[in-house]
Design a protein around this nucleic acid. Structure first.
Lengths: 117, 117, 117, 117
DNA sequence: GTGGTCTAGACCACA
DNA sequence: GTGGTCTAGACCACA
Protein backbone atom coordinates (compact mmCIF):
# COMPACT_ATOMS: atom_id res chain seq x y z
CA UNK A 1 0.00 0.00 0.00
CA UNK A 2 1.12 3.50 -0.73
CA UNK A 3 -0.20 6.57 0.98
CA UNK A 4 -0.80 9.98 -0.40
CA UNK A 5 0.74 12.62 1.79
CA UNK A 6 -2.02 15.15 1.26
CA UNK A 7 -4.40 13.29 3.53
CA UNK A 8 -4.10 11.58 6.89
CA UNK A 9 -3.32 7.90 6.57
CA UNK A 10 -6.17 6.89 8.85
CA UNK A 11 -8.62 8.68 6.57
CA UNK A 12 -7.20 6.93 3.54
CA UNK A 13 -7.47 3.59 5.30
CA UNK A 14 -11.09 4.29 6.23
CA UNK A 15 -11.88 4.97 2.59
CA UNK A 16 -9.86 2.00 1.44
CA UNK A 17 -11.73 -0.25 3.83
CA UNK A 18 -15.14 1.00 2.76
CA UNK A 19 -14.13 0.49 -0.83
CA UNK A 20 -13.21 -3.09 -0.08
CA UNK A 21 -16.58 -3.62 1.54
CA UNK A 22 -18.37 -2.27 -1.51
CA UNK A 23 -16.31 -4.56 -3.68
CA UNK A 24 -17.59 -7.46 -1.60
CA UNK A 25 -14.30 -8.39 0.02
CA UNK A 26 -16.18 -9.30 3.20
CA UNK A 27 -19.66 -10.70 3.60
CA UNK A 28 -22.01 -9.17 6.19
CA UNK A 29 -21.04 -10.51 9.62
CA UNK A 30 -17.60 -11.65 8.45
CA UNK A 31 -14.57 -11.40 10.64
CA UNK A 32 -12.24 -8.71 9.38
CA UNK A 33 -8.47 -8.55 9.94
CA UNK A 34 -7.36 -7.98 13.51
CA UNK A 35 -5.80 -4.69 14.44
CA UNK A 36 -2.34 -6.19 14.34
CA UNK A 37 -2.88 -8.07 11.09
CA UNK A 38 -4.04 -5.01 9.23
CA UNK A 39 -1.25 -2.94 10.71
CA UNK A 40 1.29 -5.43 9.42
CA UNK A 41 -0.34 -5.69 6.01
CA UNK A 42 -0.61 -1.94 5.51
CA UNK A 43 2.72 -1.31 7.21
CA UNK A 44 1.26 1.23 9.57
CA UNK A 45 1.17 1.51 13.32
CA UNK A 46 -1.44 -0.59 15.15
CA UNK A 47 -2.68 2.58 16.83
CA UNK A 48 -3.53 4.01 13.45
CA UNK A 49 -5.59 0.92 12.71
CA UNK A 50 -7.26 1.32 16.10
CA UNK A 51 -8.25 4.82 15.08
CA UNK A 52 -9.62 3.53 11.78
CA UNK A 53 -11.61 0.77 13.45
CA UNK A 54 -12.86 3.26 16.04
CA UNK A 55 -14.28 5.38 13.27
CA UNK A 56 -15.78 2.47 11.37
CA UNK A 57 -17.21 1.22 14.64
CA UNK A 58 -18.79 4.57 15.46
CA UNK A 59 -20.33 4.56 12.01
CA UNK A 60 -21.81 1.15 12.70
CA UNK A 61 -19.93 -0.47 9.86
CA UNK A 62 -17.98 -2.88 12.02
CA UNK A 63 -18.42 -4.28 15.50
CA UNK A 64 -15.85 -5.25 18.10
CA UNK A 65 -16.19 -8.56 19.87
CA UNK A 66 -13.71 -8.54 22.70
CA UNK A 67 -11.01 -11.15 22.41
CA UNK A 68 -12.67 -12.34 19.23
CA UNK A 69 -11.81 -9.56 16.86
CA UNK A 70 -13.74 -7.18 14.70
CA UNK A 71 -16.61 -8.17 12.44
CA UNK A 72 -18.34 -6.49 9.54
CA UNK A 73 -21.83 -5.46 10.52
CA UNK A 74 -24.65 -7.64 9.29
CA UNK A 75 -26.92 -4.61 9.20
CA UNK A 76 -27.62 -4.51 5.49
CA UNK A 77 -29.06 -1.05 5.65
CA UNK A 78 -25.76 0.37 6.82
CA UNK A 79 -23.90 -1.53 4.13
CA UNK A 80 -26.30 -0.32 1.47
CA UNK A 81 -25.55 3.25 2.46
CA UNK A 82 -21.93 2.92 1.40
CA UNK A 83 -22.49 3.15 -2.32
CA UNK A 84 -24.49 6.39 -2.31
CA UNK A 85 -21.93 7.76 0.14
CA UNK A 86 -19.11 7.29 -2.32
CA UNK A 87 -21.28 8.30 -5.25
CA UNK A 88 -21.93 11.63 -3.59
CA UNK A 89 -18.21 12.13 -3.08
CA UNK A 90 -17.42 11.31 -6.67
CA UNK A 91 -20.14 13.62 -7.94
CA UNK A 92 -18.87 16.53 -5.85
CA UNK A 93 -15.34 15.81 -7.00
CA UNK A 94 -16.36 15.71 -10.66
CA UNK A 95 -18.33 18.92 -10.49
CA UNK A 96 -15.53 20.67 -8.66
CA UNK A 97 -13.00 19.54 -11.23
CA UNK A 98 -15.16 20.69 -14.10
CA UNK A 99 -15.99 24.02 -12.46
CA UNK A 100 -12.32 24.65 -11.78
CA UNK A 101 -11.61 24.51 -15.50
CA UNK A 102 -14.60 26.62 -16.34
CA UNK A 103 -17.57 24.35 -17.01
CA UNK A 104 -21.03 24.73 -15.51
CA UNK A 105 -22.98 21.85 -14.07
CA UNK A 106 -25.09 21.67 -17.21
CA UNK A 107 -22.01 21.47 -19.38
CA UNK A 108 -20.55 18.84 -17.08
CA UNK A 109 -23.69 16.77 -17.58
CA UNK A 110 -23.79 17.25 -21.33
CA UNK A 111 -20.13 16.41 -21.87
CA UNK A 112 -20.70 13.31 -19.78
CA UNK A 113 -23.66 12.28 -21.95
CA UNK A 114 -21.67 12.80 -25.15
CA UNK A 115 -18.71 10.74 -23.96
CA UNK A 116 -18.30 7.38 -25.63
CA UNK A 117 -17.09 5.54 -22.58
CA UNK B 1 3.96 21.17 -3.65
CA UNK B 2 3.15 17.64 -2.66
CA UNK B 3 3.42 14.68 -4.95
CA UNK B 4 1.37 11.57 -4.96
CA UNK B 5 3.56 8.52 -5.02
CA UNK B 6 1.17 6.51 -7.15
CA UNK B 7 2.11 8.40 -10.30
CA UNK B 8 5.39 9.58 -11.80
CA UNK B 9 6.23 13.08 -10.68
CA UNK B 10 6.86 14.35 -14.20
CA UNK B 11 3.32 13.37 -15.19
CA UNK B 12 1.94 15.17 -12.21
CA UNK B 13 3.95 18.25 -13.09
CA UNK B 14 2.65 18.15 -16.65
CA UNK B 15 -0.89 18.12 -15.37
CA UNK B 16 -0.12 20.79 -12.84
CA UNK B 17 1.33 23.00 -15.52
CA UNK B 18 -1.60 22.57 -17.85
CA UNK B 19 -3.92 23.36 -15.00
CA UNK B 20 -2.09 26.59 -14.38
CA UNK B 21 -2.42 27.50 -17.99
CA UNK B 22 -6.15 26.91 -17.92
CA UNK B 23 -6.37 29.07 -14.84
CA UNK B 24 -4.71 31.84 -16.81
CA UNK B 25 -1.46 31.95 -14.91
CA UNK B 26 0.38 32.75 -18.14
CA UNK B 27 -0.86 34.67 -21.14
CA UNK B 28 -0.30 33.29 -24.68
CA UNK B 29 3.32 33.95 -25.66
CA UNK B 30 4.45 34.61 -22.08
CA UNK B 31 7.82 33.53 -20.82
CA UNK B 32 7.50 30.67 -18.38
CA UNK B 33 9.90 29.76 -15.54
CA UNK B 34 13.31 28.41 -16.49
CA UNK B 35 14.10 24.77 -15.88
CA UNK B 36 16.16 25.66 -12.85
CA UNK B 37 13.58 28.06 -11.43
CA UNK B 38 10.79 25.55 -11.69
CA UNK B 39 12.96 22.77 -10.30
CA UNK B 40 13.75 24.92 -7.28
CA UNK B 41 10.17 26.01 -6.79
CA UNK B 42 8.77 22.49 -7.02
CA UNK B 43 11.74 20.98 -5.21
CA UNK B 44 12.28 18.40 -7.90
CA UNK B 45 15.21 17.42 -10.03
CA UNK B 46 15.96 19.76 -12.99
CA UNK B 47 16.05 16.69 -15.22
CA UNK B 48 12.44 16.06 -14.30
CA UNK B 49 11.52 19.57 -15.42
CA UNK B 50 13.42 19.00 -18.65
CA UNK B 51 11.28 15.93 -19.28
CA UNK B 52 8.13 17.92 -18.51
CA UNK B 53 9.07 20.73 -20.86
CA UNK B 54 9.96 18.19 -23.53
CA UNK B 55 6.47 16.77 -23.33
CA UNK B 56 4.78 20.14 -23.30
CA UNK B 57 6.96 21.17 -26.21
CA UNK B 58 6.06 18.09 -28.22
CA UNK B 59 2.39 18.86 -27.61
CA UNK B 60 2.95 22.35 -28.93
CA UNK B 61 1.94 23.95 -25.68
CA UNK B 62 5.28 25.64 -25.07
CA UNK B 63 8.16 26.62 -27.29
CA UNK B 64 11.90 26.80 -26.63
CA UNK B 65 13.76 29.87 -27.80
CA UNK B 66 17.49 29.15 -27.75
CA UNK B 67 19.24 30.80 -24.84
CA UNK B 68 16.08 32.73 -24.15
CA UNK B 69 14.10 30.15 -22.29
CA UNK B 70 10.67 28.66 -22.76
CA UNK B 71 7.51 30.49 -23.76
CA UNK B 72 3.86 29.59 -23.68
CA UNK B 73 2.56 29.09 -27.21
CA UNK B 74 0.51 31.88 -28.72
CA UNK B 75 -1.41 29.34 -30.79
CA UNK B 76 -4.87 29.87 -29.30
CA UNK B 77 -6.22 26.72 -30.87
CA UNK B 78 -3.79 24.60 -28.89
CA UNK B 79 -4.61 26.47 -25.70
CA UNK B 80 -8.32 26.01 -26.28
CA UNK B 81 -7.81 22.28 -26.51
CA UNK B 82 -6.62 22.11 -22.90
CA UNK B 83 -10.00 22.41 -21.32
CA UNK B 84 -11.62 19.54 -23.22
CA UNK B 85 -8.49 17.53 -22.55
CA UNK B 86 -8.95 17.82 -18.81
CA UNK B 87 -12.68 17.46 -19.11
CA UNK B 88 -12.20 14.12 -20.82
CA UNK B 89 -9.91 13.00 -18.02
CA UNK B 90 -12.36 14.04 -15.35
CA UNK B 91 -15.19 12.32 -17.16
CA UNK B 92 -13.28 9.07 -17.46
CA UNK B 93 -12.28 9.30 -13.82
CA UNK B 94 -15.86 9.94 -12.71
CA UNK B 95 -17.25 7.07 -14.75
CA UNK B 96 -14.55 4.72 -13.55
CA UNK B 97 -15.21 5.64 -9.95
CA UNK B 98 -18.93 5.12 -10.35
CA UNK B 99 -18.51 1.86 -12.21
CA UNK B 100 -16.14 0.59 -9.57
CA UNK B 101 -18.86 0.91 -6.98
CA UNK B 102 -21.45 -0.63 -9.27
CA UNK B 103 -23.20 2.17 -11.15
CA UNK B 104 -23.78 2.23 -14.90
CA UNK B 105 -23.10 5.27 -17.03
CA UNK B 106 -26.81 6.05 -17.10
CA UNK B 107 -27.03 5.93 -13.32
CA UNK B 108 -23.92 8.09 -13.09
CA UNK B 109 -25.61 10.68 -15.27
CA UNK B 110 -28.90 10.56 -13.42
CA UNK B 111 -27.31 10.82 -9.98
CA UNK B 112 -25.36 13.79 -11.27
CA UNK B 113 -28.54 15.48 -12.48
CA UNK B 114 -30.27 14.91 -9.17
CA UNK B 115 -27.41 16.36 -7.14
CA UNK B 116 -28.07 19.75 -5.63
CA UNK B 117 -24.59 21.14 -6.03
CA UNK C 1 -7.43 14.62 40.31
CA UNK C 2 -7.69 11.00 41.23
CA UNK C 3 -8.86 8.27 38.93
CA UNK C 4 -10.88 5.23 39.69
CA UNK C 5 -9.30 2.13 38.24
CA UNK C 6 -12.57 0.46 37.35
CA UNK C 7 -13.14 2.74 34.40
CA UNK C 8 -10.96 4.11 31.62
CA UNK C 9 -9.47 7.47 32.46
CA UNK C 10 -10.67 9.06 29.25
CA UNK C 11 -14.25 8.12 30.11
CA UNK C 12 -13.88 9.60 33.54
CA UNK C 13 -12.47 12.78 32.06
CA UNK C 14 -15.37 12.99 29.60
CA UNK C 15 -17.82 12.76 32.49
CA UNK C 16 -15.80 15.17 34.58
CA UNK C 17 -15.78 17.68 31.76
CA UNK C 18 -19.52 17.43 31.18
CA UNK C 19 -20.05 17.87 34.87
CA UNK C 20 -18.01 21.03 34.80
CA UNK C 21 -20.08 22.33 31.92
CA UNK C 22 -23.30 21.68 33.82
CA UNK C 23 -21.85 23.49 36.81
CA UNK C 24 -21.31 26.48 34.56
CA UNK C 25 -17.51 26.42 34.58
CA UNK C 26 -17.52 27.61 30.96
CA UNK C 27 -19.99 29.83 29.18
CA UNK C 28 -21.28 28.81 25.73
CA UNK C 29 -18.61 29.62 23.14
CA UNK C 30 -15.87 29.92 25.78
CA UNK C 31 -12.36 28.75 25.10
CA UNK C 32 -11.59 25.63 27.08
CA UNK C 33 -8.15 24.46 28.22
CA UNK C 34 -5.78 23.41 25.46
CA UNK C 35 -4.90 19.76 25.10
CA UNK C 36 -1.56 20.31 26.78
CA UNK C 37 -2.95 22.47 29.57
CA UNK C 38 -5.57 19.93 30.55
CA UNK C 39 -3.06 17.10 30.33
CA UNK C 40 -0.79 18.91 32.74
CA UNK C 41 -3.61 19.81 35.10
CA UNK C 42 -5.05 16.31 35.19
CA UNK C 43 -1.60 14.72 35.10
CA UNK C 44 -2.49 12.50 32.19
CA UNK C 45 -1.01 12.04 28.75
CA UNK C 46 -1.90 14.64 26.12
CA UNK C 47 -3.05 11.80 23.86
CA UNK C 48 -5.64 10.86 26.45
CA UNK C 49 -6.94 14.41 26.40
CA UNK C 50 -6.98 14.24 22.60
CA UNK C 51 -9.21 11.20 22.87
CA UNK C 52 -11.50 13.00 25.31
CA UNK C 53 -11.75 16.08 23.11
CA UNK C 54 -12.35 13.84 20.08
CA UNK C 55 -15.35 12.34 21.83
CA UNK C 56 -16.71 15.65 23.06
CA UNK C 57 -16.18 17.03 19.57
CA UNK C 58 -18.07 14.18 17.93
CA UNK C 59 -20.90 14.79 20.39
CA UNK C 60 -20.98 18.42 19.32
CA UNK C 61 -20.18 19.66 22.80
CA UNK C 62 -16.93 21.35 21.84
CA UNK C 63 -15.42 22.61 18.61
CA UNK C 64 -11.84 22.72 17.44
CA UNK C 65 -10.47 25.88 15.92
CA UNK C 66 -7.11 25.04 14.46
CA UNK C 67 -4.23 26.89 16.04
CA UNK C 68 -6.74 28.66 18.25
CA UNK C 69 -7.76 25.90 20.58
CA UNK C 70 -11.00 24.23 21.56
CA UNK C 71 -14.18 26.07 22.41
CA UNK C 72 -17.37 25.08 24.15
CA UNK C 73 -20.21 24.94 21.69
CA UNK C 74 -22.62 27.84 21.71
CA UNK C 75 -25.41 25.52 20.62
CA UNK C 76 -27.65 25.84 23.67
CA UNK C 77 -29.73 22.86 22.69
CA UNK C 78 -26.74 20.56 22.98
CA UNK C 79 -25.79 22.09 26.31
CA UNK C 80 -29.34 21.70 27.61
CA UNK C 81 -29.21 18.01 26.86
CA UNK C 82 -26.44 17.44 29.38
CA UNK C 83 -28.58 17.61 32.50
CA UNK C 84 -31.17 15.00 31.44
CA UNK C 85 -28.28 12.86 30.23
CA UNK C 86 -26.76 12.71 33.69
CA UNK C 87 -30.15 12.47 35.35
CA UNK C 88 -30.91 9.35 33.36
CA UNK C 89 -27.61 7.84 34.42
CA UNK C 90 -28.23 8.62 38.07
CA UNK C 91 -31.74 7.19 37.91
CA UNK C 92 -30.54 3.96 36.37
CA UNK C 93 -27.77 3.73 38.93
CA UNK C 94 -30.18 4.30 41.82
CA UNK C 95 -32.67 1.75 40.59
CA UNK C 96 -29.94 -0.79 39.99
CA UNK C 97 -28.54 -0.27 43.46
CA UNK C 98 -31.95 -0.66 45.06
CA UNK C 99 -32.85 -3.70 43.01
CA UNK C 100 -29.57 -5.32 43.90
CA UNK C 101 -30.49 -5.21 47.56
CA UNK C 102 -33.99 -6.38 46.89
CA UNK C 103 -36.24 -3.36 46.42
CA UNK C 104 -38.71 -2.87 43.58
CA UNK C 105 -39.00 0.37 41.66
CA UNK C 106 -42.10 1.27 43.65
CA UNK C 107 -40.29 0.74 46.92
CA UNK C 108 -37.36 2.74 45.63
CA UNK C 109 -39.73 5.62 44.91
CA UNK C 110 -41.54 5.38 48.23
CA UNK C 111 -38.36 5.22 50.29
CA UNK C 112 -37.16 8.25 48.40
CA UNK C 113 -40.35 10.16 49.20
CA UNK C 114 -40.12 9.26 52.88
CA UNK C 115 -36.51 10.38 53.18
CA UNK C 116 -35.96 13.62 55.12
CA UNK C 117 -33.12 14.88 52.99
CA UNK D 1 -11.14 -6.82 43.52
CA UNK D 2 -10.43 -3.28 42.59
CA UNK D 3 -10.37 -0.42 45.01
CA UNK D 4 -11.27 3.13 44.41
CA UNK D 5 -8.58 5.46 45.61
CA UNK D 6 -10.98 8.14 46.74
CA UNK D 7 -12.00 6.18 49.81
CA UNK D 8 -10.12 4.18 52.43
CA UNK D 9 -9.88 0.54 51.47
CA UNK D 10 -11.14 -0.69 54.85
CA UNK D 11 -14.35 1.30 54.34
CA UNK D 12 -14.79 -0.20 50.90
CA UNK D 13 -14.26 -3.67 52.33
CA UNK D 14 -16.84 -3.04 55.03
CA UNK D 15 -19.37 -2.09 52.36
CA UNK D 16 -18.37 -4.97 50.17
CA UNK D 17 -18.84 -7.38 53.08
CA UNK D 18 -22.27 -6.04 53.98
CA UNK D 19 -23.26 -6.28 50.37
CA UNK D 20 -22.29 -9.91 50.31
CA UNK D 21 -24.37 -10.53 53.39
CA UNK D 22 -27.41 -8.92 51.80
CA UNK D 23 -26.87 -11.07 48.76
CA UNK D 24 -27.03 -14.10 51.02
CA UNK D 25 -23.43 -15.20 50.64
CA UNK D 26 -23.44 -16.32 54.27
CA UNK D 27 -26.30 -17.69 56.33
CA UNK D 28 -26.92 -16.36 59.83
CA UNK D 29 -24.43 -17.98 62.19
CA UNK D 30 -22.10 -19.07 59.35
CA UNK D 31 -18.36 -19.05 59.72
CA UNK D 32 -16.83 -16.31 57.61
CA UNK D 33 -13.31 -16.24 56.11
CA UNK D 34 -10.39 -15.86 58.48
CA UNK D 35 -8.46 -12.64 58.53
CA UNK D 36 -5.65 -14.22 56.57
CA UNK D 37 -7.94 -15.85 54.03
CA UNK D 38 -9.78 -12.64 53.29
CA UNK D 39 -6.54 -10.67 53.15
CA UNK D 40 -5.18 -13.08 50.59
CA UNK D 41 -8.36 -13.13 48.57
CA UNK D 42 -8.70 -9.36 48.48
CA UNK D 43 -4.97 -8.85 48.22
CA UNK D 44 -4.92 -6.40 51.06
CA UNK D 45 -3.02 -6.17 54.28
CA UNK D 46 -4.26 -8.49 57.07
CA UNK D 47 -4.28 -5.48 59.39
CA UNK D 48 -6.84 -3.90 57.11
CA UNK D 49 -9.04 -6.95 57.47
CA UNK D 50 -8.62 -6.80 61.22
CA UNK D 51 -9.88 -3.24 61.15
CA UNK D 52 -12.82 -4.28 58.99
CA UNK D 53 -13.79 -7.13 61.28
CA UNK D 54 -13.44 -4.81 64.28
CA UNK D 55 -15.98 -2.48 62.76
CA UNK D 56 -18.35 -5.25 61.75
CA UNK D 57 -17.98 -6.69 65.22
CA UNK D 58 -18.77 -3.38 66.89
CA UNK D 59 -21.88 -3.13 64.74
CA UNK D 60 -22.92 -6.56 65.90
CA UNK D 61 -22.86 -7.98 62.41
CA UNK D 62 -20.19 -10.56 63.12
CA UNK D 63 -18.88 -12.20 66.26
CA UNK D 64 -15.45 -13.44 67.15
CA UNK D 65 -15.18 -16.84 68.74
CA UNK D 66 -11.76 -17.22 70.33
CA UNK D 67 -9.47 -19.45 68.30
CA UNK D 68 -12.42 -20.42 66.22
CA UNK D 69 -12.61 -17.47 63.90
CA UNK D 70 -15.38 -15.08 63.03
CA UNK D 71 -19.04 -15.89 62.48
CA UNK D 72 -21.91 -13.99 60.98
CA UNK D 73 -24.38 -13.00 63.66
CA UNK D 74 -27.56 -15.02 63.95
CA UNK D 75 -29.37 -11.95 65.22
CA UNK D 76 -31.87 -11.57 62.39
CA UNK D 77 -32.85 -8.11 63.48
CA UNK D 78 -29.35 -6.84 62.86
CA UNK D 79 -29.23 -8.52 59.51
CA UNK D 80 -32.55 -7.02 58.54
CA UNK D 81 -31.20 -3.60 59.22
CA UNK D 82 -28.61 -3.92 56.47
CA UNK D 83 -30.96 -3.34 53.60
CA UNK D 84 -32.40 -0.04 54.88
CA UNK D 85 -28.87 0.99 55.73
CA UNK D 86 -27.78 0.67 52.13
CA UNK D 87 -31.05 2.04 50.86
CA UNK D 88 -30.46 5.20 52.87
CA UNK D 89 -26.99 5.52 51.35
CA UNK D 90 -28.29 5.06 47.84
CA UNK D 91 -31.03 7.58 48.41
CA UNK D 92 -28.63 10.19 49.72
CA UNK D 93 -26.30 9.51 46.84
CA UNK D 94 -29.09 9.83 44.28
CA UNK D 95 -30.40 13.06 45.75
CA UNK D 96 -26.91 14.51 45.95
CA UNK D 97 -26.21 13.62 42.37
CA UNK D 98 -29.45 15.16 41.18
CA UNK D 99 -29.01 18.29 43.28
CA UNK D 100 -25.50 18.73 41.97
CA UNK D 101 -26.83 19.03 38.45
CA UNK D 102 -29.64 21.29 39.50
CA UNK D 103 -32.69 19.18 40.29
CA UNK D 104 -34.81 19.48 43.44
CA UNK D 105 -35.93 16.48 45.42
CA UNK D 106 -39.38 16.74 43.88
CA UNK D 107 -37.93 16.71 40.38
CA UNK D 108 -35.71 13.78 41.33
CA UNK D 109 -38.79 11.86 42.42
CA UNK D 110 -40.81 12.78 39.36
CA UNK D 111 -38.06 11.92 36.90
CA UNK D 112 -37.70 8.62 38.70
CA UNK D 113 -41.43 7.91 38.34
CA UNK D 114 -41.36 8.76 34.66
CA UNK D 115 -38.41 6.48 33.93
CA UNK D 116 -39.28 3.33 32.04
CA UNK D 117 -36.84 1.07 33.83
C1' DG E 1 1.66 27.95 21.01
C1' DT E 2 -2.36 25.30 18.94
C1' DG E 3 -4.53 21.17 17.22
C1' DG E 4 -3.57 16.92 14.25
C1' DT E 5 -1.21 12.80 13.14
C1' DC E 6 1.65 8.95 13.72
C1' DT E 7 4.86 5.75 15.71
C1' DA E 8 6.67 2.78 19.38
C1' DG E 9 5.70 0.21 22.91
C1' DA E 10 3.78 -1.10 27.41
C1' DC E 11 0.24 -3.36 30.19
C1' DC E 12 -4.50 -4.99 30.90
C1' DA E 13 -8.69 -8.30 30.78
C1' DC E 14 -10.55 -12.03 28.67
C1' DA E 15 -10.49 -16.74 26.69
C1' DG F 1 -4.04 -14.02 20.51
C1' DT F 2 -7.73 -10.31 20.74
C1' DG F 3 -9.27 -5.65 21.55
C1' DG F 4 -8.66 -1.63 24.93
C1' DT F 5 -6.06 1.81 27.21
C1' DC F 6 -2.34 4.75 28.17
C1' DT F 7 2.14 6.88 28.00
C1' DA F 8 6.08 9.05 25.67
C1' DG F 9 7.45 11.58 22.26
C1' DA F 10 8.10 13.07 17.47
C1' DC F 11 6.87 15.99 13.57
C1' DC F 12 3.52 18.76 10.94
C1' DA F 13 0.74 23.03 9.40
C1' DC F 14 -0.80 27.25 10.69
C1' DA F 15 -0.39 31.92 12.77
Amino acid sequence: MEWRNDKAIYLQVVEWFKHNVILGMYAPGDKIPSVRELALKLEINPNTVVKVYDILNSEGLIEAKRTNGYFLTDDLEILERLKPFFAKEYIVQYLNNMKQIGYTKEQAINLLKESKD
